[in-house]
Design a binder for these strands. Sequence first.
DNA 1: CTCATGCCCTGCTGGC
DNA 2: TGCCAGCAGGGCATGA
Length: 293
Amino acid sequence: MPELPEVEVVRRGVAEHVAGRTVAEVEVLHPRAVRRHVPGADDFATRLVGRCLTAARRRGKYLWIELGDGTLPDGEALVAHLGMSGQLLVQPPGAPDEKHLRVRFRFADGGPELRFVDQRTFGGLHLAELVEVGGLAVPKPIEHIACDPLEPVFDVEELAGRLRSRRTSIKRALLDQSLVSGIGNIYADEALWRAKLHWARPTATLTRPKVRELFAAVTEVMQDALRAGGTSFDALYVNVNGESGYFDRSLAVYGRAGQPCSRCGAPIRRDPFMNRSSYTCPVCQPKPRNAHL
DNA sequence: CTCATGCCCTGCTGGC
DNA sequence: TGCCAGCAGGGCATGA
C-alpha cells in the first residue's frame, strides 16, 4: 500500500534518525529481501559495513540512501522499495525481533537500529550506482522511473503530450511508473474522483486543461495525505516509529463500495480492474461511451 | 515500440 | 469448528 505520501513519510523518518550514521553490521535474515542485489546477501552486507548513510532521497515509491565516507557521497546508494508490506523501522538495540524482520542494520554509535520488516516480501533492498538523469543523481536500476508530481522538475505539459499519444485508459496510465511515478491504486482512484473522471476514459480524449486539472487533483490529494501522515488500513503501513497515518478517514472512494459519495450521495461503485478494484461514484464519474476497458 | 496479462508472496476474511 | 477461495497489489518478465 505505500504510495508516494507513505514513502515520503518514511524518507523523512530515515533522514531524521539515520542520516549521518556509520554502519557497523548488517544482518540479512531473509535472502528474498535482497534478491535485487545480484552479487548476493553476503556481498550486500559486507559492502555496507564502515560506510556512512549520508542523505535520504525519494522518487515516486522508491527511496534511497546515499552512501559515503564521512559525509561526502561516494556515488553509490542503498535503494529501498517497500512493495506492498515493507517497513523501515528505527528500533532500540535489543528490542525483540519483529516476526517478519528481513534485514537489520547496526550502527557504530551503538544507537538505534534500522530494520527492514516485510510480511509479503514484495519489497526489498539493494545497492546501486548513482547515475545522472536530467541533472539529478538517481540509482541506475530506477533510471526508467519517471519523475513524480511533487518534484520541482515535474512537467505537466510534457506529460499531457505523452498521455494524448497513448492508446489506453487514464487509470492504466496513472499507474504506469515510466509515465509518472508515485501513484498507486488508492491515490489514482482518489484523484480521478476529485477530477470527476472515470477510470476507463481513453487518455487520447483528454484535453490539456483536463490533464492539468487531474494533476492538480493528484498533487492536492498527495499533499493532504502527507499532512495526515499517510494512509493505512491496518498496522502494515507505518512510519519509522511504527505509527500509522490517518488519511484513510479522508478517503472519498477507495475501499468505500456501497457507501454514499460525499459530493452527491450516490453509492460508491466497485469495478474489477486489472485483477484489482477501481472505486468510482457512478454519478460524479459516469462511464464514458468510448470507455477503454 | 506499445499495451496487456500473469506471477511473486503472506495473512486475513467470509462462505459453507 | 475447520477449510479453502478470494482478495490485497507494485513491478517486472513475457507475449501479442
